[in-house]
Structure formats: C-alpha cells, structure tokens
C-alpha cells in the first residue's frame, strides 16, 4: 500500500496540457483500487485546484471580457 503523501507541482508552473493530463491521471487513480483513502482528500484538493486553473486559463472573467470588448469596439 502506498502510504506516502503525494507531492504536486504548483499548478501555475504547469502548461494547460500538463494540467489536463494530470487531471485525467488523478481521475483514473480514483477509479482504480490504487487510491489510498488517506490520500483521497489530497487528490481531491489537487484535482479541484487543477480544474479551477484550467478553467481560469480557458475563460475570461466578466471584467476582462468587458475590457477586451471595449478595446475592440473602440
């Protein structure tokens, strides 16, 4: 049984592709029997963090959107 605490690279240092691939890997891990219940929280937190980062990179906030559109329609 793997009881070591998983070590993660800070999300900001990952490329989008790396982040999505890691997400998929965590997903596979959670669906397998390998996942240690002790690390479930850590993995879930990591996955949430990755999801937020990926989505953040893909989509703009209202404020940014307004700024961009204002720029175009000048």
């Amino acid at each position: 049984m793997n009881t070591e605490k998983p070590v993660f690279v800070p999300v900001k240092e990952l490329s989008y592709t790396q982040a999505v691939n890691e997400l998929e890997a965590i997903l596979r891990l959670m669906q397998s029997d390998e996942c240690d219940i002790d690390n479930l929280t850590a993995y879930t937190r990591r996955a949430t963090e990755l999801l937020r980062e990926c989505r953040g990179r893909l989509t703009a906030t209202d404020e940014e959107l307004r700024a961009i559109l204002a720029d175009i329609e000048k």
Binding site: E24, M30, L40, T44, L51, R55, L58
Partner: peptide, 24 residues
C-alpha cells in the same frame, strides 16, 4: 475547439465527483 476543451474539463470534473462519491 475551446468549447471542446471546456467540455473535457466539465467531463473530468463530473467524473471526479462521481468517483469520489462512489469511493466514499
């Protein structure tokens, strides 16, 4: 293309939640 990427994220998010719930 971007929409597909978002969709993939949504799918992963959903599956994560599902497998987490299942596991617990």
């Amino acid at each position: 293309q971007g929409g597909r990427a978002l969709e993939r994220l949504r799918r992963i998010g959903g599956e994560l939640l599902q497998s987490l719930t299942d596991r617990i």
